[in-house]
Amino acid sequence: MASMEPEHEAALEPVGRADAVRLTEDLRVAIGEARQAAVVLAGRVRDAHRARVWVPLGYSGWGQYAQAELGISRAQAYRLIDIAESAGALSRAIGAAGVLAAVSPAGDTTGLVDIGLSQRALRDVHGWLDELTTVVTERLTTATRRAGQLEVPAVRAIVAQAVDEFRQGPLPAADNTAAEDGDDALERALADAERHPTDMRLVRRLVDEMAAAGGKLGQTALELAPAYLSDQEAADTVLARYADDIGCDVETILATRRYALTGDRRALEGTWL
């Protein structure tokens, strides 16, 4: 009867020191290339969002475009934008200190540099960019005055230390999205709330954006079915068909119409909110 004991591979023999050093350096290079590729990808996603590429391609919004064309969720797409914005801001801070050439990778065309930070770190500091970049520029400028031109490891160490300090602080207040259009503001608020579900400021911001979007939908419903019509008349006349056209239920459309009429968010409870 054959033995049921698992077969064990022969123990691996360690390589010599020279080979170990070479293999380790190869790993460092590969990790750096992968990290930089991720930052370049994030930059291209950011550029696509800024160009509103979903409009000429016929998509209803950024989230639908990201899912259909890139195979990623709306939240993932916004996380990549956060990474690009953080990397871009830190790259500019390094440049402002006069050390950009020391860390800019050859052939880079995105304006981003490999500063040795993980994607998670770049996402975490997105809400502090103004304060963080001021600190980074000041520290790099001071270090350059004292020691002359900084080597790449020194630049990365200074940036990493500043980033770590900010990551240990409290979650920043939600970004001001007043300048964003309604769809983008709502999508961004949803993505932020998904990333930090326990932060009540972000949750309240999401509720505010959803209410604002519901108000806009309600205004459209009012234009189609004026206020003198009862809910039943409005539904029978046009809103049932309108709800079906946009993939929504008629009760939600009627709730947003009532909200547009009264300005009372309680009209949305149980439907839109």
Score class of each variant (00 low, 15 high):
33 E>D: 09
168 Q>D: 10
260 A>Q: 01
85 E>P: 12
180 E>A: 15
5 E>H: 07
238 V>K: 06
40 V>R: 11
243 A>R: 03
211 A>S: 12
126 H>L: 05
124 D>K: 10
155 V>A: 00
240 A>Y: 04
55 V>R: 14
97 A>Y: 00
131 E>W: 04
200 M>K: 11
128 W>S: 10
40 V>P: 07
225 A>H: 02
174 A>C: 01
69 E>G: 01
156 R>Y: 06
88 G>A: 12
229 L>C: 07
207 V>L: 12
175 D>T: 08
37 A>N: 08
188 R>T: 05
88 G>N: 07
265 R>I: 06
224 L>G: 02
14 P>I: 03
11 A>H: 04
16 G>E: 09
202 L>S: 02
206 L>T: 02
85 E>G: 13
17 R>C: 07
66 A>Q: 09
196 H>V: 09
38 A>R: 08
159 V>W: 05
210 M>A: 14
261 L>A: 09
51 A>R: 13
92 R>E: 06
48 A>H: 13
97 A>N: 01
60 S>V: 14
211 A>W: 12
174 A>N: 04
156 R>A: 14
246 I>F: 02
22 R>C: 11
187 E>D: 04
262 T>M: 05
37 A>H: 09
34 A>V: 06
92 R>S: 05
214 G>T: 01
143 A>D: 01
169 G>M: 13
55 V>P: 08
112 L>R: 15
127 G>K: 07
272 W>V: 11
221 A>I: 14
270 G>T: 02
106 A>I: 15
34 A>S: 06
76 Q>S: 12
236 D>E: 12
163 V>G: 00
138 E>L: 15
126 H>S: 12
151 E>V: 09
206 L>P: 01
26 D>H: 15
196 H>F: 10
165 E>M: 14
257 R>S: 02
147 A>N: 12
196 H>Y: 11
46 R>V: 12
109 T>N: 15
255 A>V: 15
49 H>M: 14
273 L>V: 05
174 A>V: 06
47 D>A: 13
146 R>S: 14
228 Y>A: 04
129 L>G: 05
39 V>N: 04
82 D>V: 10
212 A>F: 14
17 R>S: 10
86 S>D: 11
111 G>L: 12
271 T>G: 02
118 S>P: 02
143 A>P: 00
273 L>I: 11
251 E>K: 15
56 P>K: 03
114 D>V: 01
117 L>I: 03
209 E>C: 04
152 V>I: 08
31 I>R: 11
132 L>T: 00
60 S>W: 09
249 D>E: 05
20 A>S: 15
115 I>R: 09
50 R>T: 04
25 E>K: 13
